[in-house]
Simulated scan of single mutants.
Amino acid sequence: MTSRLNPDDQQHVDQYLQLPQHRVERRPFRPWMLLVVVLSAVIGLGLLSRLLSYLVL
């Protein structure tokens, strides 16, 4: 995808993004870890709801 900025403006944007405060080191995205967290939350809330239903009824 090409930029709609003129080359001078694009150069200013590139310089701005190269500043140290805009360069944040991030860990790589791990989709399996996200899947584990979501599944454990769903299973945990399901078990909690069953426990509460047994206690109420």
Results as ranks from 00 to 15, higher is better:
L47Y: 07
P7T: 03
V37T: 05
D14K: 08
L34E: 08
R30E: 12
M1Q: 14
L39S: 14
V36W: 08
Y16R: 02
L57W: 14
H12A: 15
F29G: 11
P31N: 08
H22F: 14
N6D: 12
S49I: 08
L51W: 14
L45P: 02
L39E: 00
L55P: 00
R50W: 12
R4K: 10
H12V: 12
V38Y: 05
V38M: 09
S3G: 01
R23D: 13
Y16K: 04
M1I: 06
R26C: 11
F29M: 09
G44F: 01
G44W: 08
H12P: 01
E25D: 09
P7E: 10
L55I: 07
R4C: 05
S49P: 00
V36A: 13
E25H: 08
I43Q: 00
L5M: 03
L5N: 02
R23L: 06
G44A: 03
L48M: 11
D8K: 11
L57M: 12
L45C: 10
V56R: 15
R27G: 04
L48G: 14
L5A: 01
L17F: 05
P7L: 07
L55N: 07
Y54S: 13
Q11S: 10
L48I: 12
L55F: 09
L51H: 08
S40I: 01
L17N: 09
V42L: 10
T2A: 15
P28R: 09
N6F: 06
R26I: 06
Q10L: 15
Y16I: 02
D14H: 05
P28W: 02
H12T: 07
F29C: 07
L34Q: 06
L45H: 01
E25M: 05
D8S: 11
G46V: 00
D9Q: 12
T2L: 13
S49K: 07
D8M: 10
R50F: 10
L47V: 10
V37Y: 08
Y16F: 14
S40G: 02
Y16T: 04
L45W: 06
L51T: 13
L19H: 04
L55R: 04
Q18L: 11
M1E: 12
P31K: 09
V36S: 04
M1F: 13
W32I: 12
L39D: 00
W32D: 15
L39Q: 02
L19Q: 09
L57D: 15
V38C: 12
N6G: 08
P31A: 12
Q18M: 12
L17I: 04
M33Q: 15
V37E: 10
P31E: 03
N6Q: 06
Q10H: 07
